[in-house]
Amino acid sequence: MLIEQLINGLTLGSIYAIVALGFTLVFGVLGIINMAHGEIFMFGAFIGVMITSTLNAPLWVAFLGAIIITAIMGYLLERFALRPLRHKQGVSHLAPLISTIGVSILLENLSHHLFGAGNHPFRTSFAEISFQIGSITIYLVQIVIFVISIVLMLVLTFWLGKTRAGKALRATAENLETASLLGVDTKKTILMTVIIASAMGGIAGILVGMAFNSVTPQMGLSMGLKGLAIIILGGMGSVRGAMLGGLILGLAETFIVVYGDSGYRDAIAFLAIIIILLIRPQGLFGQKIST
C-alpha cells in the first residue's frame, strides 16, 4: 500500500517537475512567469488525444506531434507576444506577463472551439497492463511516464551543464548583457528557450493524459497554477528546485488523498506557497538556472 502510493506520487510528481521546468526555464531567461504555459501543456494533451484516438496512430507519433505543435506555439508566443514588448521605451515591466495571460485565454477558448468542452479519454494500448510484485500492483503506464520524465530531466541537466547552447542559456539567464558581450545571440537563445519549454509542456500534457486517462480544456489553468506553486517552492529559475519541488508536490498530493481528506488535494500546492513565502521567500533553492 505504502509503496504503491509512493509510486503513484512519484509518477505524478515527475510530471509536475516537467511542467515546472518549462516555467523555470522561461523565468530564467526572461524574468517573467509564462501564464500561457499551462494552456500550451493542455494543447499537447489534446494533440495526443487526437493522434492516438482519432487517427489511431501509435503513442510515439503522439509525442512527436505534440512536441512539434507545442514547439511551434512556443515560437509564435515568443515572436509575437513577448519579443515586441522587450526593450521598448515606456512599456511596463508587467506587459509581458499580461501578454501571456492574454495568450492563455485565447488558447483556452480556442481549445473549446477545436476540441469541445467535454472530457476526452486518453487511451493507450497498454493502459490495463500491470505487474504484480508481491502485494503491489504497478501499471506499465506509470513506468512509462516515470521513465520518460526522468530521461527528460537527465537530458535537460546534461544539456544545460555540458553543451555550448546549454551554457549560453545559463549565461543568458544569469545576465543578458554579459551573455551578449560574450558573443551569445541572446535573441536566439531566448527564442530557443521558449520553444524548448513549450515542447516540454507538450510532452507533459501527453503524460498527464496517460496518467489520468482524461483531457479537458480546463486542465491548463490548474496545471499552470501548480507549476507556478512548484517554482515558488523550488526557487524561481532553479532547475533543481523545479524537479524536487515537482516530486514533493506529487508525493504530498498523493499521500493526502490516502491518509487525509481528498478534498484538500488541490489546496496543498497553494498552502505550500504560502508557507514557503513566509519562511523562505527565495524558495528551497533560490538561484538562477544552474546544474
Binding site: K167, A168, R170, A171, E174, N175, E177, T178, A179, L181, L182, Q287, K288, I289, S290
Partner: peptide, 14 residues
C-alpha cells in the same frame, strides 16, 4: 560581471 553561478572554468570557456 562575472557569471556568478558558473564555474571559473565555465566563465573562461564562455
Amino acid at each position: 560581471q562575472i557569471l556568478a553561478g558558473m564555474t571559473v572554468l565555465e566563465n573562461l570557456e564562455m
